[in-house]
């Protein structure tokens, strides 16, 4: 079994997530893209665990999931608050903090 394809898949997914963050404007979709990036990195971690015969990578992936859960809770609450006040979920609308 060869693990390199997994790593490359992880890199591709990560890049797609990045580009998604940069191009999408709906805050929720942006958030999903962030989740995609986290998942991509999780895949790399699990793959390396397999590669090295060592469960630490899986533990790390587990922690990433926990932190992602916390992050999603707070992030979505923030998005809700913004939506409530501005009636919009576009990340471009929240651009008052500028020159």
């Amino acid at each position: 079994m060869n693990t390199e394809p997994y790593i490359i898949l992880s890199a591709i997914l990560f890049t797609i997530g990045c580009v998604g963050v940069l191009t999408r404007r709906n805050a929720i979709v942006v958030f999903m893209c962030v989740e995609l990036m986290l998942n991509a990195s999780n895949l790399a971690l699990v793959t390396f665990a397999k590669q090295h015969g060592n469960l630490d990578g899986q533990i790390a992936a587990f922690f990433v999931m926990v932190v992602a859960a916390a992050e999603v809770v707070v992030g979505l609450a923030i998005i809700m608050t913004i939506f409530r006040t501005r009636r919009s979920a576009s990340v471009d609308d929240a651009s008052l903090l500028k020159y």
Partner: peptide, 12 residues
């Protein structure tokens, strides 16, 4: 990554 060779997989 394509340039890399990770070597043999130890397995879990």
């Amino acid at each position: 990554l394509g340039q890399l060779s990770l070597g043999t997989v130890v397995g879990l």
